[in-house]
Design a protein around this nucleic acid. Structure first.
Lengths: 317, 317
DNA sequence: TTGAAAGCGCTACCAA
DNA sequence: TTGGTAGCGCTTTCAA
């Protein structure tokens, strides 16, 4: 023992895994790190995984590649679990992972039909919250800026927003397609919105980076946020709190989501028979900062209408 | 073969590594991901490592922990190489890594005395470039905002800046200690600077996030950038290019740095006898955007004084 | 309590 | 070219 210590001996965990059949490695697959939301997630994930005595094998999907192209390489490492964030995997691929014995869980995305466990912010509820907030602050010409249209994150936020708007009898003023979750996409979409004959009085962007881009575009057009146009984002990335933006947004409960995801991996369960293929939806929270202004007169004093029965929500203007 | 394929057989790369003595895993150690500069580095690193057919084992240092506490855990995985970014390792620890057979290279930091290979932006040259730029645009009361004072990144930028300023016969107006590379630290430091009796006419921040925080603070004090105070950052993170900031800064050549670092790992060399314990310093580039204004009269038309002999650089004001 | 041996999934080597 | 065997560093099991 003393000898081993003085020689700097370290047991070879790789050899051990051969016999124990557990590598203590969990793979994390991500599309990219350019959206500030992703590093936040990755950081928490790493913290959680490491503190459970496991290591994180990071797998970034190269631009233009699909996740199904790179998963096989991952599978060779016989990782204990695979966590796929912000990317959609085919259910065929998920099945093949399961066949290899690696539980898979999706993060921040889910596959509607398939039986793949996932944890995700409740984006529909989030979208509805934004609609409520804009309504209760007297906005009547809300616009929405999409990212990638058929990604669940984007779609659910849109659907929640549109649906609640309809219940509230306010019609959508415009729907611009940004095309991707990026500052540039938000900037361009907002610029197009601002060039229209009639301005929206508020814009809900599919994500914070897009909203920040939008604010930059609105200001570049010599308009003020929120006096001329209110802006709402989604995620609550650090930049959203900076003095130049002070963005009102929906905060994703990252810690809880990460906790849930790691739990869903089933790593702590000694015997995992059948992990419940459940999709967990976690509630976001409206963070009111300074990009939404109260418009019009005679509005409800209490801006929060979430708990009010829909029938009573009659606009007084 | 057909049978193997239809059964979805994947060779166990972990078992293979036992005999080949190469895991094809390279470990990347990082302090945190909150500074936007780090995700950029990580993304490039991942891209590079993966395209060489290797995997990236990510290791985040938990807050309050020292890297030497967590390295032993890493060593157990017998990774092919260890890349340590933005954190300083004791030379004793580096020696122990080398003893385990894993080459170590430092990224974005170096240990002055020790024989540990490193790749790093030439921060002294960068600091000098900023001094030149501020001088040639007519600034006479430059201030510097430090992050963590004894980190090489911070210290070299400061030394380069101070040194060149002295050569140029312009005296430093103020030196504030921010304490860390963060938006908040930059904000607070700038606020203190702005409360002084005499304002600096320009501030060089140790990093971009700090500079952004500084701009926010300057604006919060009802001052304009650059009309009242010019601002220069370091890194060229994506935010620096956004319309609200348009930060003039020194761009770190991340791709080149990553290339060099991966090469220094010596993974491609079939037989590595003795990796040269060299410290690579890579040149940054001044990116002129809109946070530096030309002040005063009678200045040189050409803003670039780098190639001029020092003796001729006589201020005409 | 201690020690020896088998075997995890693979590659390397040597013999046929 | 093909097939068989030893052994990588560990854990587990079983015998002493």
């Amino acid at each position: 023992m003393k000898a081993a210590d003085s020689l700097g001996y370290q047991p070879n965990i790789i050899a051990r895994s051969l016999i124990t059949r557990r590598t203590n490695i969990v793979a994390v697959v991500m599309a990219n790190l350019t959206d500030p939301f992703h590093p936040q997630v990755l950081e928490q994930l790493a913290q959680r995984i490491q503190s459970s005595g496991r290591q994180l094998l990071l797998f970034l999907i190269p631009p233009g590649k699909h996740i199904d192209d790179v998963l096989p390489a991952l599978l060779q490492y016989k990782v204990d679990a695979i966590l796929i964030t912000s990317a959609t995997v085919s259910s065929r691929m998920a099945a093949s992972c399961a066949a290899q014995g690696s539980p898979v869980v999706l993060f921040n995305r889910y596959v509607p039909g398939a039986r793949i466990p996932a944890v995700c912010c409740d984006n529909i509820a989030g979208g509805r919250t934004v609609a409520n907030h804009l309504w209760s602050t007297g906005h009547v010409r809300p616009a929405f800026v999409s990212a990638e249209v058929d990604v669940t994150t984007n779609r659910d936020r849109a659907h929640g927003f549109f649906g609640r708007l309809e219940e509230l009898c306010v019609s959508l003023h415009a729907h611009e397609i940004g095309g991707e979750f990026s500052h540039g996409a938000g900037y361009d979409a907002a610029r197009r919105l601002v060039q229209r004959r009639q301005l929206p009085d508020s814009i809900f962007f599919a994500s914070d980076v897009m909203a920040i881009g939008g604010i930059d575009a609105i200001r570049a057009a010599n308009l003020r946020v929120p006096e001329d146009i209110s802006v709402v984002g989604y995620d609550d990335i650090p930049v959203a709190g900076w003095a130049s933006y002070e963005l009102t947004t929906i905060r994703q409960p990252i810690s809880q989501m990460v906790d849930t995801a790691v739990a869903a991996l089933g790593l702590d369960a000694l015997k995992i028979k059948k992990p419940p293929n459940k999709i967990h939806f976690m509630e976001g929270a409206l963070i009111e900062r300074k990009t939404v202004v109260r418009r019009g007169y005679g509005l409800r004093a209490n801006g929060d209408v979430r708990n009010s029965p829909v029938g009573q929500l009659v606009r007084k203007s």
